[in-house]
Design a protein around this nucleic acid. Structure first.
Length: 323
DNA sequence: GCCCGTCAAGGAGTA
DNA sequence: TACTCCTTGACGGGC
């Protein structure tokens, strides 16, 4: 039997006025005459984002959702080079701790997916250093929340730079330059145009990093479309993790626009995945990446509930969500 | 209250 | 070499 736990990304389509990603651009920040007042404004925005994150967790708890990816934009301009002197963690200690305490009390898995500008295999030292600053920002947020940072940040392998084999080796070389505390935080995900499941397995096995398998990306970019052949290797990358295996699930927007995410999840595709995985592992945490966010999760649960296939499979357990 | 340009980032693709 | 596009949600000016 496999337990499938479903989660969603960053924001809700049903909870109103609950953005965790309110922001201020550096252009606007700079335009404010009083720098101290501008920083206090940034802190007010961050507090609102953290408050809304806690509201989202409460909303999730009410619907039985125990898995959630937080926005990486919780603290606007936190990693900007002109704001290095800003001690945002100490200004936000209470709000951060409240999120961690709530997640722990309700046995929730919360994590991050820093955006694709965090590139570890880059040949550019400045780009690498900026990547470290962004990773450190995520580390400090988790630390202040009181959440064990192990395997809480999903990254891609990076750029190909006209030579994929060399780019893979660059990742391995640059990995040695990543502080151990940040290394422990990272999971690697296959992407939809450069690095396939096999490429990621090569790196993950070599460096002992858990692999987050993205089924949609795999369908868009693969060597062998039949991912089941490599499934046991994916499972093995999670052997030393304190967390269950994590997956990304999304559906293509259209044939013409295959790589973009659709509003909802095709339940047939999801059921096909469930049938292939069921019984191979005790638990799989599936991150639903759909434009309609939690609404898509609710719809998927509804579709599954109506599915004759799932009714036949009495051994399969979902964390059912009451709509 | 809606529309649309702008903001930010690194890489890929094109001229 | 220089540009445009990709992606994302939010912001804010214009109407």
């Amino acid at each position: 039997m496999t337990i499938f736990r479903l989660g969603y990304v960053a924001m809700s389509k049903t909870l109103e006025k609950a953005s965790p990603s309110q922001t201020m651009t550096y252009t606007r920040f700079q335009a404010l005459p009083d720098r101290e007042a501008a920083i206090r404004k940034l802190e007010a925005i961050a507090r609102s984002n953290l408050h809304n994150t806690l509201r989202l967790l409460r909303h999730n708890q009410a619907h039985g959702i125990k898995f959630f990816r937080m926005s990486s934009r919780l603290v606007p301009l936190a990693t900007h080079e002109e704001l290095r002197d800003w001690r945002y963690i100490s200004a936000l200690t209470e709000e951060l701790k409240a999120i961690g305490d709530y997640a722990k009390a309700n046995e929730m898995r919360i994590d991050f997916h820093p955006d694709h500008f965090v590139v570890i295999n880059t040949p550019d030292k400045e780009v690498f250093q900026r990547a470290m600053i962004v990773l450190k920002y995520h580390f400090m947020l988790l630390h202040a929340m009181g959440v064990d940072p192990t395997h809480r940040c999903v990254l891609h392998l990076g750029g190909q730079y006209q030579d994929k084999e060399h780019a893979l080796e660059s990742f391995i070389e640059n990995w040695a330059l990543v502080p151990y505390s940040l290394q422990k935080m990272i999971m690697i995900e296959n992407d939809d145009k450069s690095f396939t499941l096999e490429d990621c397995l090569y790196v993950c096995e070599k460096l002992n990093i858990p692999l987050v398998f993205d089924l949609h990306h795999h369908l868009a970019n693969h060597r062998d479309v039949n991912w089941v052949n490599e499934w046991s290797r994916v499972v093995d990358t999670w052997r030393s993790s304190p967390l269950p295996l994590k997956m990304h699930i999304s559906s293509p927007k259209s044939e013409a626009n295959f790589k973009s995410h659709a509003d909802y999840i095709e339940s047939e595709m999801f059921l096909d995945f469930v049938e292939k995985v069921d019984g191979t592992i005790s638990q799989v945490d599936c991150m639903i990446e759909a434009k309609q966010k939690d609404e898509a999760l609710f719809q998927l649960i509804k579709d599954l509930r109506d599915s004759p296939t799932i009714k036949m499979k009495s051994n399969t357990t979902f964390n059912w969500v009451e709509v």
